[in-house]
Design a protein around this nucleic acid. Structure first.
Lengths: 148, 148
DNA sequence: ATGTGATAGTTGTTTTTGCAACTATCAAGC
DNA sequence: GCTTGATAGTTGCAAAAACAACTATCACAT
């Protein structure tokens, strides 16, 4: 008889931990800045990489293009993101943060880093890097799986 | 100037990997058995623990009670889960799998284990256990965080 | 130039989710 | 017994997600 213990089942444990940590964090950018997760992610990418396309954000964040599309729409309405025509491919636009967007980004980042610092404090110092390394390996392994 | 690289930011990486692995798996129990993630989780718990309450499933899976409630409702409609009155507390019911539910469970488990085996194969043998250990530590650390 | 297939992004629709409010029951003190 | 506060589970509603279908543009072969 095959055995399955959900607590030792990686997909479950991973999504459980991810949901847990995400719940804690979400409160920060949601209540204080009115951002959803996809919006914060776009902001985070645009805060470090400038003049990129929406599809580039998709690649970097692994979010579906509809999610990114609507996130950017809202950020644009908030005057946080600006779009500039891409002359070499008029299907896409180059995205970047407005000054207001940069301010927003610079306000949020320290809070995120503070959270991470608390986390690093609560764990063994090297655990976080360790998890990141293993997640990297996991992602690479999964990339080779044929899609369901 | 504070720096934030999303790729080294644990909450992001965690949810990215979780989404990735979950997408791969979901296809199995969704397309073949018509189950959602919460439904599969309830099934998985009930496959190993019998005569438990919904709130017990909440504790074990960290899912919100509304999620569990609706999942159990559907599983009951599918004649996969049966409810038995709890004489000592009539607010709750004892849940267990029907024979049909047990069959379903026994069909899905090998597929989940096969998936895990492929994963174990793609990674270093001990990586999975390693991740599980670290996630445990992470969950414990997060449990002490005040909610946002 | 033109047709074909791919790609960038958007929109519409249906499912899920999350949250708050609700019912019913319980437990404990008075 | 009756109040009060907590707990188990459900429901309604609004926000968010998934999925498919769509427009517009591009790249490239004919």
């Amino acid at each position: 008889m095959p055995q399955l213990d959900l607590n030792d089942f990686l997909p479950y444990r991973l999504s459980r931990s991810a949901a847990l940590i995400s719940r804690k964090l979400r409160a920060i950018y949601r209540r204080k800045y009115g951002l959803t997760v996809p919006e914060w992610r776009c902001l985070a990418i645009l805060g470090t990489e400038d003049n990129i396309t929406a599809s580039h954000i998709c690649q970097r964040t692994d979010m579906h293009k509809t999610k990114v599309s609507r996130a950017i729409q809202k950020l644009a309405r908030m005057k946080v993101v600006m779009r500039v025509e891409n002359p070499t491919d008029r299907r896409s636009e180059f995205l970047s943060l407005t000054p207001r967007g940069k301010t927003l980004f610079n306000n949020i980042v320290p809070e995120m880093l503070a959270f991470e610092a608390r986390l690093a404090n609560a764990l063994n110092a090297s655990d976080i890097n360790h998890i990141l390394t293993l997640l990297n390996r996991l992602d690479k392994a999964l990339a080779n799986f044929k899609d369901g």
